[in-house]
Nucleic acid binder design. Structure first.
Lengths: 334, 334
DNA sequence: GTGCAAAGTGTTACCGATAACGCAAACGAG
DNA sequence: CTCGTTTGCGTTATCGGTAACACTTTGCAC
């Protein structure tokens, strides 16, 4: 059996035209008569012609239609939504998504970047603004359209589409104080890579400091933020500081885990202890108590990132710093 | 500024060898002296040489190192974990993941498939066993390594790595009966594409029928399964059938949403009404009541799928039907 | 009728890597 | 010392498309 796919030349021969004309018809670019068009399309159909983008991208010096997208993870809700929105948008514009996860580890980011750059992608979407030296060097050398997402960067390498995490934290800190909380704790994850929750925490601490309140006690676990980490983080923190009257969690997953611990430990929420998260998980809105959190428009972020990248690839003018607004949800748990 | 990346020829020239020798060194294949190797590597490093896989994949008739992965969605937990595991495994073997989401819609599956086949991928991982005619035809014509995941298929096109959803449903049906439930309901989503939850429901109904019990009342919503859909699905179903003493939800997200509704409606779980889900979300294990559900090893599934695909691509012998075991979790909500 | 532009198509060269093959030098066995 | 084998490297052809350019034909204005 012949596994080879039919080539453009075969389609062209069958239609009685040159490769170039067939190419023009199939890409719908340049000039050709309707008659020719019909013949070429018909033969392409008949032969089950599948264009070879490998050859097309290689042959022309214009970039490929691949876009590399790198996120810390795909599980855990938020990034899944972001990537889903990115992919949907890129697909709409005729691009393909080369995905990667790096678990907040610089060396994985580097490895991924190296392998993706080898595909001469049209552009990249990376998470975060902190890159290792090697990564930064590769990005600089590559000089391709690049969107850094998640963490708003007012001086991006190319384009930044993100959230102001510092303000999120600050605002939540204010809310803790307004609600009369004074003995406050913070539980986070991913200690190995002081990444994206960190800025939120900094803003949170600043709010406490500005008000002359005691800074938050912290428990940073060395694993990805998750329900379990929230549960055990709360347990650890409260065993060290039983007097806490409020805990800010890195995200909603952890907050829900933390609330589960509070329930198990017979601590009532919000009377005994206040709890807040970040991110706006669906789950959090249908709990018995509506979780105090910050809602983030993950889909809007993904869509904006992809649309901006496409615009940049096409050479259209773009704003290079785009803030995605987040919204404090007072909820019932603080 | 010259944006062109250095080519193999430039590296070869700089090292004073032919392109072919440089190629051999960089791919570590064929013969070359250690001395030559050192020179080539050094020049490649110095020039920041980035290999061009576009050219490599195109030039040789061996397939590319791209693998297409198609799932219904990336949000909602389960598939995020699956893709994460797939990607990690593929990366380990030197492949890149071309992701796609099709929202259970056949025409999106087709569009995606067409665009991905144009990249001459080494293999594909698709979700589900039901494909449209056009999709099936393309897959047949392509004759490439193909893993169908999620839903176990004992007669796969090529390879199937999945879960026996029918048995999951049957087993859960038995548990409902054991727990004394007799007025039973089912809430599911994605009505537009009677897809993957359907088989579970069939098994569930069979268990009730086999025991001579009344078949389940159903509420199938026309949207992706989610917390909200669980909430509103339970509401709809219970308003039509207030006498229900147990509801089986398509997944854990929906079940948690359903429990939230029960709480809002002052129905006690499990005394007034029993609730069960499917999937084994982290969240479900740290709720005040441990959710009755079926645990699924999403990461194991993803890993097995990717490993099997790689083996097939390399021509190693593989089992073509691999069942990923799932485990009933009795929990406290039924 | 001449000139000129636009439409429609073909020719040639090339993108950057690899496969297949060829060839010289070094090496080892008898 | 000869012959066969291995080692190390180069030459040539090629993958499937596209850019750039050239060419012919047609239509239309003057």
């Amino acid at each position: 059996m012949d596994k080879r796919k039919p080539s453009l030349a075969e389609v062209a021969d069958a239609a009685g035209v040159s490769k170039m004309t067939a190419s023009r018809v199939l890409r719908n670019s340049g000039r050709f008569s309707q008659e020719t068009r019909a013949r070429v399309m018909q033969e392409a159909e008949r032969l089950n012609y599948v264009p070879n983008r490998l050859a097309a991208a290689f042959g022309s010096d214009t970039a490929s239609t691949l876009v590399g997208v790198l996120v810390p993870r795909l599980s855990g809700g938020l990034f899944g939504h972001v990537v889903e929105a990115i992919d949907a948008t890129l697909t709409r514009f005729g691009y393909q998504t080369l995905i990667g996860t790096y678990e907040n580890r610089a060396e994985q980011e580097e490895t991924w970047l190296k392998s993706v750059l080898a595909w001469r992608p049209a552009g990249l979407i990376l998470t975060g603004r902190a890159h290792s030296e090697a990564t930064a060097a590769m990005l600089k050398a590559a000089t391709l359209p690049l969107v850094e997402i998640w963490d708003l960067n007012t001086r991006p390498i190319d384009i930044s589409v993100g959230i102001n995490h510092f303000d999120c934290g600050y605002e939540m800190g204010r809310l803790f104080l307004t609600k009369g909380r004074r003995q406050i704790g913070y539980v986070g994850g991913d200690a190995a890579s002081p990444g994206l929750g960190r800025t939120r925490f900094d803003g949170f601490q600043k709010a406490l400091r500005d008000a002359g309140s005691r800074p938050a006690e912290t428990e940073i676990l060395d694993d990805r933020p998750s329900f379990y980490q929230g549960y055990y983080g709360a347990q650890n923190l409260l065993s060290r500081h039983p007097d806490l009257d409020g805990i800010y969690f890195q995200n909603d997953e952890m907050a829900i885990g933390g609330m589960a611990y509070c329930h198990a430990a017979k601590l009532s929420v919000p009377d005994g202890i206040g709890v807040a998260g970040w991110g706006g998980m669906d789950a959090a809105t249908t709990l018995q108590l509506r979780l105090t959190t910050t809602n983030v428009s993950t889909r809007a972020l993904g869509k904006a990132a992809a649309e901006t990248l496409v615009a940049r690839v096409r050479g259209d003018p773009v704003r290079d710093v785009i803030e995605i607004k987040s919204q404090l949800v007072p909820g019932d748990t603080l």
